[in-house]
Amino acid sequence: MDKLTAFDAFVQSAETGSFVAAGRKLGLSASAVGKAVARLEQRLDARLFHRNTRNMTLTEEGRLFLERCHRIFEEIEAAEAELARSNRTPRGRLRVSLPLVGMLLTPVMAHFMRTWPEVQLDLDFTDRLVDVVEEGFDAVIRTGHPSDSLLMSRHLGRFRLKIVASPNYLAQYGVPLTPDDLHEHHCLHQRSPDTGKLRPWPFVRASGQGKPVLPERMSATAVDPLIELASAGMGIACLPPFAIRDEIADGRLVSILDEWLTGTDQFHVLWPASRQITPRLRAFVDFMAEHLQPQ
């Protein structure tokens, strides 16, 4: 507290231009303000003001220190405001961007809406890499590793993709035992709406081996048609496990080539680091972290 009092005395003196005016704002005598600044200079081993009988001006060290003090007090005010808001009921519009696969998270979203009925969700489903700040999103949910330093992030869960087909398809065309066997099968691919390229299937390959040849029976930018077509026996697809949990549970799809798959993907929720987190955003982030467990 002594340090903060000294910092406040310094800031007020710098902004008002005198110890007398600073003292009036702080409810202290000019002498007390001057002594606080002097002790601060002694502790910092730096002169913060040029002083004479008529005026006082900041030294270069004082100017730099004033900028830092402003940031310190802004952080304190932000922390106080955040704590004060934390006791308020989350309400208002929350604009969130999700990948197309995020459509399969609607049960979680419905649970959130029942828990926080005063929050109005505005959901934008796209695999385009949106600009969170410029496009005015409160948060985004993304797969993969977050790399934007302007965004705060929280990990929501990991998942490993699965290669699946219907029992009828496998009975008709046979069960592929290695990734190379897929060149004789009907492969259903997901295509990136941004690049137009097919999403790769994450197979383990021995050193020196190239990627397996995967025929393109059809492709789609969303996973929903891939699930339906694979369940209907039209081919083999590579899909996230939480998207096909029901289909696998009731036997419409079966998992194959599990031992050849590598790597995991993950969900993160991200939001602008430059903004103070609102009660509705805090509620959303905490809720998703608690209830979204892809695997």
Rank of each mutant, 00 (worst) to 15 (best):
Q190D: 05
L188P: 01
S192C: 14
S192I: 08
V175W: 12
K162F: 06
P167T: 15
K162L: 13
A165W: 05
L170F: 07
H189E: 08
V164T: 10
H185V: 03
R191D: 01
S166E: 14
S166T: 11
D180A: 13
V164Q: 07
H183D: 09
L188Q: 01
R160V: 03
Q172F: 03
S192E: 13
L188R: 02
Q190A: 15
V175A: 15
K162C: 10
L177A: 15
L177V: 11
L188N: 02
V164F: 07
P193R: 12
N168A: 15
L188H: 07
V175M: 15
H185N: 04
A165M: 12
H189M: 02
I163W: 00
S166C: 14
H189N: 06
E184P: 02
V175Q: 15
Y169V: 06
L161I: 00
D181I: 10
N168T: 15
D180S: 10
P193F: 15
L182A: 02
E184Q: 10
H186E: 11
R191P: 00
I163F: 03
Y169Q: 07
H183E: 05
L182G: 01
D181T: 07
Q172V: 06
P176Q: 04
H185M: 07
L182T: 01
L170N: 06
C187I: 15
D181W: 05
A171M: 11
N168W: 09
L188I: 07
R160G: 05
P179M: 07
I163Q: 03
Y173C: 04
Y173M: 09
I163V: 13
H183Y: 05
R191F: 00
E184S: 05
K162W: 02
P193H: 13
P179F: 06
S166K: 09
P167G: 09
Q172C: 02
P167K: 12
L161R: 03
H186M: 07
S192F: 15
A171C: 10
H183K: 09
Q172S: 14
R160W: 00
S192R: 12
L188T: 01
Y169P: 06
H189R: 00
A171Q: 13
C187E: 04
H189V: 01
A171V: 07
R160I: 01
C187R: 01
Q172L: 11
T178N: 11
L161W: 00
P176C: 14
S192A: 14
H185R: 10
R160Q: 11
L182K: 02
N168L: 12
L188Y: 04
V175H: 15
I163N: 00
Y169N: 01
P176R: 06
L170T: 10
L161E: 02
P167Y: 10
P193Y: 10
Y173D: 01
E184H: 09
G174E: 08
P179A: 15
R191E: 11
V175D: 13
